[in-house]
Design a binder for these strands. Structure first.
Lengths: 136, 136
DNA sequence: TCTTGACTTGGACTCTGTCCATCGTAGGAT
DNA sequence: ATCCTACGATGGACAGAGTCCAAGTCAAGA
């Protein structure tokens, strides 16, 4: 069904019912679930799936570049399946809602050479914080 | 001695030996210690100080706006006393070193209205990732 | 110096995530 | 269709980071 499952199979990812469920749970836009939330939704479809398996599958999806790990609050990491289009996050400070945003321009070039301290900069994470319409 | 202690006292922050030590440990530029690191350094000066007290003091310094909480790695939060000048962070992906950087321009204005989903955006966090000179 | 409310303590507890020995199974080989 | 086996799943113990609480202590104003 989903491209994600197709891509994973094509890359030789051994398919199990557990992995399929985890990948399916992560399908969609503006999805930013914690590992426990993924586990809870997976259990709804496959009651005996364990936490360790969910953590394993998430870790592999991240390694494969199919899912991005996001830590917006210093608590649980969240998993974002929108990995194929560079984007940033807009987070509500009250309720924690997260939206993906796509600003113009490349934030990487915003850091002038004299501010790089000799670092080789290869990525930028940007998090916009504020209140969502429901919490304002 | 430090402005920080003066400001805290002026704002009616009840001064104790424990709080003084925590504030002193956080003095300086490019300081980004975890709570446990702050505790370890505090213990060197005040052997009986407890972890809970360090957490309490750090939490209050953050509430007072004197220290910024930074989560760059999804592990322990780090505490940055450079709270009075807006800045961003440059993080080494290998060794974890953190530098404060001050790019030109206001990153808040980079997010166009049609990308705000009705949010009232009030802050931006930017983390540049790469390799430091020692790890490159 | 006294008093009192705020601060500190340390241990128990929660949450998030990792590790490991054992069991089960996907998928290639026959 | 069946068999094999290496890879994946399981769940319980463990670890790291942080919070909570009841009891004891102390800073600072009266």
């Amino acid at each position: 069904m989903s491209d994600l499952l197709e891509r994973l199979r094509a890359r030789g990812w051994r398919m199990t019912s557990q992995r399929r469920v985890v990948a399916e749970v992560l399908d969609g836009d503006h999805v930013h679930l914690t590992a426990d939330e993924v586990h809870a939704r997976a259990v709804a479809r496959l009651p005996e799936i364990s936490r360790a398996t969910v953590y394993n599958a998430l870790g592999e999806l991240v390694s494969l570049g199919e899912v991005i790990e996001v830590s917006t609050d210093g608590r649980a990491k969240r998993y974002d399946p929108n990995a194929h289009r560079p984007h940033q996050h807009l987070v509500c400070s009250r309720c924690g809602t997260i939206r993906d945003v796509h600003p113009a321009g490349d934030p990487l070039t915003d850091l002038p050479a004299e501010q790089r301290f000799g670092f080789t900069v290869s990525a930028v994470e940007v998090t916009y914080r504020g209140l969502c319409p429901g919490c304002a």
